[in-house]
Simulated scan of single mutants.
Amino acid sequence: MKSYDTLSQAITGLQKEGYTEDLNLQKNHIECKSLEYQILPNEFEVDLIYRFEGDSNPDDSSILFAISSKKYKIKGILIDAYGLYSDPLNAEMINKLKYKP
């Protein structure tokens, strides 16, 4: 797995690898607004995960997921906070977003 120093470098690198869709995390699915898809946990895979810490503020922590879906034939990027500021998810989504290399 390639290493990145910043979130913006990771986004640029993954876009070059074909992860072009902007994905949003919902309680029980991932949303791709541009294509109007609601992708359920059994319809996507977590390909890579990158975590980034804020330089001086732990509140700036974020996590980037490289996600693919064979069903919808897309690859995209999902960015979320982690820790105290992460979004509430159902158990199926929590389990799915655990990276299993």
Rank of each mutant, 00 (worst) to 15 (best):
M1P: 06
M1T: 07
K2Y: 10
S3N: 13
Y4S: 03
D5L: 14
D5C: 11
S8N: 09
S8V: 07
S8Q: 09
Q9I: 00
Q9K: 13
A10I: 06
A10Y: 10
A10M: 06
I11T: 07
T12E: 12
G13T: 06
K16T: 09
E17Y: 13
E17H: 14
G18K: 09
G18A: 11
T20A: 12
T20E: 15
E21A: 11
E21T: 06
D22M: 12
L23C: 05
N24M: 12
L25E: 13
Q26S: 14
K27V: 10
K27T: 11
N28L: 04
H29L: 08
H29A: 10
H29N: 13
I30T: 04
I30L: 14
E31W: 07
C32M: 02
K33Y: 03
S34Q: 13
L35N: 12
L35F: 05
E36C: 03
E36L: 03
Y37Q: 02
Q38F: 06
Q38I: 00
Q38W: 02
I39R: 05
I39C: 06
L40I: 07
L40A: 15
P41L: 06
E43R: 05
F44P: 00
E45G: 02
V46W: 01
V46C: 04
I49D: 05
Y50L: 00
R51L: 00
F52M: 00
F52D: 00
E53L: 03
G54Y: 04
G54F: 02
D55A: 09
D55I: 02
S56I: 04
S56D: 11
N57Q: 07
N57R: 09
D59H: 14
D60H: 14
D60V: 03
S61Y: 13
S61N: 15
S62D: 14
I63F: 08
F65G: 05
A66E: 07
A66V: 08
I67T: 05
S68E: 05
S68V: 04
S69L: 02
S69E: 01
K70H: 06
K70E: 10
K70I: 04
K71P: 02
Y72T: 00
K73S: 13
I74A: 01
G76P: 00
G76R: 03
I77E: 01
I77R: 02
I79D: 07
D80C: 13
Y82C: 00
L84K: 12
L84W: 03
Y85C: 04
Y85W: 11
P88T: 10
L89Y: 09
N90T: 10
N90C: 14
A91E: 15
A91Q: 15
A91W: 09
M93Q: 10
M93W: 10
I94H: 12
I94R: 15
K96F: 04
L97M: 04
L97F: 07
L97K: 05
K98V: 09
P101V: 06
